[in-house]
Structures are given as C-alpha cells and as structure tokens.
Design a protein around this nucleic acid. Sequence first.
DNA 1: TTTCATAGTGTATTAAGTACACAATTGTAA
DNA 2: TTACAATTGTGTACTTAATACACTATGAAA
Lengths: 253, 253
Amino acid sequence: MLSKQQLIEYSEDARKNYVNHISIDCVVFGFHEGQMKVLLLKTNDEEKWYLPGGFVLKEEPIDNAAVRILQERTGLDKIFLQQFRVFGDPDRSKVHNDMYADMLPKEQNWFSGRFISIGYYALVDFFGVIPHPDQFSELCAWRDLDDMPEMQLDHEKIYKSALDALRLQLNYQPIGYNLMPREFTMPELQKLYETILGKKLDRRNFQRRILAFGILNRSEEPRKGGAHKAPYLYSFDIENYQHALTEGFKGGW
Amino acid sequence: MLSKQQLIEYSEDARKNYVNHISIDCVVFGFHEGQMKVLLLKTNDEEKWYLPGGFVLKEEPIDNAAVRILQERTGLDKIFLQQFRVFGDPDRSKVHNDMYADMLPKEQNWFSGRFISIGYYALVDFFGVIPHPDQFSELCAWRDLDDMPEMQLDHEKIYKSALDALRLQLNYQPIGYNLMPREFTMPELQKLYETILGKKLDRRNFQRRILAFGILNRSEEPRKGGAHKAPYLYSFDIENYQHALTEGFKGGW
DNA sequence: TTTCATAGTGTATTAAGTACACAATTGTAA
DNA sequence: TTACAATTGTGTACTTAATACACTATGAAA
C-alpha cells in the first residue's frame, strides 16, 4: 500500500510513462489439486479483492503490456494470453476514482479520469507462479474459482466474462498445455475440463474425444506409487498442439 | 474534407469532448445481390479507403459510442454490433499522425498521440443504410468483400479480423436477421452463408441444418413471378432467434 | 411441347456423440 | 492372505449429426 506521498509520485510517473485512460486487467487461471484457481490481489485494509492489472507504456503494444504486467505479478515469462473483451462503461472505475480523489489533489491525480480496460485471460502453470503483490496491495494469492471473494469495481464481471470466453475457446481449441504439468494422467486432464466447464464428463467418452484430437502422447511407463491402479502418463504433443491452436478443431460449417 | 481551420476546430472540440487515445473502428457488413459488402469511406484526394470510426465521448459507454458512430454513417438506429478485438500497436496510426502533424501545430493537434482502437463489427440491412460520409471524407460506399480496395492504416487487418470473428460466430450463433430482408428464400439465405464463409455449401444439407436450428418460419405462399419454380419464403422466428443468440447452438462439450 | 434453370425433397453412408458395464491394478483393513 | 474399496483401462450398442448424392416439380422462354 502506498503512502500519500508515494501515491503522488506514482501518479506523476504514470502520467509520464503510461497511455492515459487505458488499463489492462488480467484474469489468470491456474489449476491445482483438481481446482481451477484465479490469481487475485488485496490490500490489508480493504475487504475486496481485485484482478492483476496495469497500464500501457506510451510506446508499448498492448499485448506486451499484458505480458509485462503478468511477469511482474507471477514471475513467468512465457504466458498464454488472450484478449477477450473491453470494459468501457464510464462509471466502471467510479469507486476507485473517488478513493484516490480523497488522497490526491486533482491536478496531481492521474487516476481521476475514466479508464477503459482491456481484458486478458491467461492460462498458467500453477507451480511456476510466484505471486508478487503490486504497489497497491499486500496480498497476491490464488483463489478457488468456486469460492471467489467479493471484488472491487467491475472485476467480478470481468472474470466471469473471461470464464465464458475460456469455455467458448474449449470448443474449438486445445487447452491445458499451459495449465497442466509436463506429464499428467487422463483423469487429471479430465478434471481440468470439468472444472472449467463446471460439470462432470463421462470418463470413457472424454478419453476417446481428447485422444481423437491427436495432441497427446502416452508415456511407456505408468505413474507408480499411487494408492490405486497405476494410471498412464500423457504429455502434450507440442507440434500438433500448436497446430490445433492456430487451425482450430472442427468448425461446424 | 476539412480545411486547416476546420481541422483545428475539430481537434479542439475533440479534446473537449472525447476520451483521448481511444478510437472505435467498425466493420459494417451488408448483403446484397448475393454479395457480402463492407461499408467504407474515402476522401477524394487519397486512394486508400478506411473504415467508419470515431471516438468515445467522455461520459459515454463504448458500446453506445459504436452505435452512435454507425448511426451517423448509416442512418440506422437498431444495429447488431459485436466487439471483437482491440488494435493497440503503438505505431498503428503513424501515417495518420504524420499527416495531421503537417497540417496542425503540435499543441493544437489532438490526433498526434497514439490511438488504441476497439474493433466492432456490425451486421446491417443493406437497404436500410443511407451512407453518410464523415467530416474527413467525401465518399461513403459499399464495397464487395471479394473486391476490397487498398486501405489506410491497419484497417485491412481490422476487417479481416472481423471476418474471422464473424465466421467463428457462425458456428455457435444464428446469423442473418440483420442482414436479410424480412422474407427470403432458402437459396438466398444459403448464399449469405456461402459468402461469409467463402465456400459453396450443399443445398440439401444446408436446408436441413438451418431448419434444425428452429429459427425459421415458412410462409404459406411461395414467391411468385420469378423466372423459375416459385420458392418458399421464410422469415426468422424472432423469439427463437433471440434465444439462440444468447444460448448458442451446440457447444461441443 | 420441349428445354432450361431453379426449387423441393429423400435416402444411404459415414462420423461423432452418448450411455453404459466389466475387468485389472493397487493399497488397506480384516 | 485374502477380501475390499478405490481407481484406472477398455469396449460396445445406440442415437444423432454430417456428408454425399439423384430424382421430381415448376415456370418461363424458345
């Protein structure tokens, strides 16, 4: 959390370096222990959480800005990022505006204006992430998708919209390379799909379908040491996976 | 086309009224005589065309801005609009910037900065549109999708991206209500799909599939007076159509 | 009345999606 | 050591959707 003096400095820096009126908000999805997770931030003195976000440098492509912002929050440098929609209601950042208006003199307050936010979602490796709070927060942590806390501004709307976009993507693109460890079992992958979709799938049909995509390689050796029958291990065939990403799966017409 | 003095005035007005650094570009699709059309603008003294676009008023939701911009260009007031992506390379408007830099003193030039553009596509009734040029152009006209001219800035990239988005939409949403006249024949509707997709479809299979969506009503009376066998007339069942728009068709998983 | 272009309809085949059941493996508790 | 519970692997019948393809019907013009 910034002091008033720091806030003034941040505001002045921001005016110098960032494109005004534009922000970026990222919905970072991770997957761990059969749970879909979203990376959130929080200050100590506020109840509500918010999404990792930031601004666009004056000479920076917006996609790079999103990558930079996520690098700062997660430590990751290769991130699957997808722009999914713009949030541009004039009063979407009203609460924020008012908050900073109390703390900053108007002429020094870069935050006073309206911000139009570009929404990105990211799929990341849960274990690769080292959550870093930003300047405004003390806490950066994973939250379960089915146990999301109250959120600031329109961030609830944003993450729900991201989830919709992700579910849609599931229909015509492969998913998982950025969310699963290198090797995983079929039930583990199924759990990912079930979590994203929020519903149960049939084991046998899931397996057949996902294998038909041709993006998985099965290891020779099954995973040992588990409490039950040793499952096979799979990994993504990265070449086919990339191809499927660009080409899409079926198409309909 | 604006004179230098008018340009200065426009620039000052813009600074007062619009959110800086944000623009909107619209890809307006129409359909006429079996051809997919896109609405474009042009000045007399430049070869290249550009997309209808504009800026966001300081207190205006971005979707409203897109509607307002299209109302001005087309005269339509009910428009199917879909945000599809943001174009935010720092040098995307460089040509424009340079052009205005020659004409406007820097401190009076609202256009000098970088603009991040929100792309919308619109599906409209061809006959409902009365093309109005904007302040910068003399010409506002339909162009065939398969005969598109050279375009300014990154507008070629934008309309191609819009077409991709539209094709994707075809897979999970109905299309046509905003593009077809109230009554139409099955071959006419098929032509629309073929044009959007850029490929031929089988008559019989198309009919079966589109009817299976349950969004069409068939009139009692076929269209008479044609040179051949009188075709049946169809119209959209607006209730089912709307339902399909929000719910989507199949889904995959 | 024949011909041509177009419209309407049906059927067989293949592929994809869904529903469902049994056998195999492994650790644990009797 | 043996029975059990939990989990994984696999197969098959059924239904639905997608594809390929051919004939009949209509209306205007030659």
